[in-house]
Amino acid sequence: MDTFFHQLDLVLPRFWSGVWLTVEATLLGGALAFVLSFVLGLMLRSETLVLRGLARFVVEFFRGTSIFVQLFFLFYALPGLGFQLAPLFCGVLAFGLNYGAYGAEIVRGSINSIPAPQWEAGVALNMTAGQRMRRVILPQAWARMIPQFTNLLIQLLKDTPLLSLILMADVTYVMQQVRQASGNSIAAYGLVLLVYLVLAYLLTLIMNLLEMQAKAKLGEGRGVRGLFTARTAPGGAGSPGGEGVVGP
């Protein structure tokens, strides 16, 4: 155990930079995936065949081919075609496209799950198609997307060790070196597991706050602020159902 801590101490700056790389790749990949989820998800619902077909192709391609192979392709094959991409850029691109493809189906499905009468009410108020989508449908669909996005984000986090395939020293890679140097597999891999658990839990907490906020906008639950205020005001704006039926 002493050797382990000694070795860990030796690589501590690299350990933290490995953790940071893992976080960075997760957040940047997640951000790209998030944007692509909406772009592709909305295109999947387009009435224009070309847009819909293009999105369908991208989604099926990236869902249907291994992220492992995609990383290799971006990093080792593209230079042969004259494109040399930075390793982090390759990683973020692969994660973003992959999880964007899955996210697109989440966006499409959540929008489709909003009942048709909500669209019809928008028509009856003469809102444009864009207004109906932006101001009525998406805010409702958003609350349904978040828990599914949380799952994807955590899976993305757990895919980041793949970065070592393209020569990047993420936290797993650094700890493998510590394991080799110290011979203590239990401590080395145990610590990596702990790192992922903590990171995943932090992401879950943040996403849960987003979900609470989104639901509060729909009048469900007390919202994020409700976490910090005592439940002493029944009948306040945040209490559902309490004053439902009031006949004049």
Binding site: L218, G219, A237, S239, P240, G241, E243, V246, G247
Partner: peptide, 10 residues
């Protein structure tokens, strides 16, 4: 200032 879900059907 109520949410629709806090109102009765009527």
């Amino acid at each position: 200032d109520a949410h629709p879900s806090q109102l009765s059907g009527g």
